[in-house]
Design a protein around this nucleic acid. Structure first.
Ligand SMILES: [Mn+2]
Ligand SMILES: [Mn+2]
Ligand SMILES: [Zn+2]
Ligand SMILES: [Zn+2]
Lengths: 145, 145
DNA sequence: ATGAAATTGCAAGTTACTTGCAATAAGAAA
DNA sequence: TTTCTTATTGCAAGTAACTTGCAATTTCAT
């Protein structure tokens, strides 16, 4: 997903293109394989445009989320991590606990669970499968202190 | 899991039995099929012992979590929901978005994903599978407004 | 160029939780 | 039962992560 595609999707929904918005989106585009915190988004945005403001970052994230352009994970410590949604097709992720890098899992292993839900009269509407661990690089760094 | 078993596990770890602790645990025991908020835990505890304090609730939850006696889900709105852990054996849950009721899924459908992780040199350490939807009762209430 | 509508920065507010500390309670040891 | 160490508690203040109101600024269709 590149910057102009995103700006066009926003435009199509009545949102205007601003310097701050472009910078925030550029940070997300540059990190589209990694879950990053708002703090990181803000500080990287400030590198490109020092006057970028925290409220602006939050308000832009809110818009992206509303348009389903954002993938969001709430970490165990309660911090929220974000990245651009990588595809419209239903999928899951491998998530590195070291660096936040993600890899796509493009199938969903839930067939028998859907059957189970039916048996329990449970109307299944959503599911979340997240696999955590360490990517090759982070595993290597752990062993080489 | 009943109150005395819990108190004994705490005692075995150097924690004392107090009125407040007993009440908080009793609330959790009485809701051991349901994810509930801290607010709920506090207000129900206050019904049984009006002087129960918020800090005390949080500090007791912290202890239960450290001893792996607690299951915790962070909801989309950022609020944290708790229930007693229901078994030591690895398992997952169906979680009702209406009332927080949970049902156990006692198998784990992740075999092919573990294989996939190996291929990607990803050291898989944890996974989370949560299925959300509506239980029979909540579904019925939705249709009868 | 104009003007309506979106956006922004700032400061103040909120919520969910955490922490320091002095007072109290538990329960093992004497 | 009394003593005494240690855990626990309540309170109040603090923190972190957002959220909101509002006036000033910017965007961009006309
Ligand atoms: Mn994705
Ligand atoms: Mn369980
Ligand atoms: Zn990594
Ligand atoms: Zn329900």
């Amino acid at each position: 997903m590149n910057l102009n595609v995103l700006l066009n999707k926003l435009k199509a929904n009545g949102y205007k293109t601003t310097e701050q918005r472009k910078v925030i989106l550029q940070v997300l585009v540059s990190n589209d394989q990694n879950l990053i915190s708002v703090e990181t988004i803000l500080s990287k945005s400030k590198e490109m445009n020092p006057k970028t403001n925290m409220s602006t970052v939050y308000r832009n994230l809110e818009i992206l989320e509303k348009l389903d352009l954002l993938y969001k994970v709430i970490a165990e410590n309660g911090m929220t991590l974000y990245k651009l949604a990588c595809s419209d097709k239903h999928h899951h992720h491998l998530i590195c606990k070291g660096c936040g890098k993600t890899e796509v899992i493009d199938f969903c292993p839930l067939k028998s669970l859907i059957q189970l839900s039916k048996e329990k009269n449970f109307n299944l509407t959503e599911h979340k499968l997240e696999l955590y661990g360490y990517c090759k690089d982070c595993e290597y760094n752990k062993k080489q202190p």
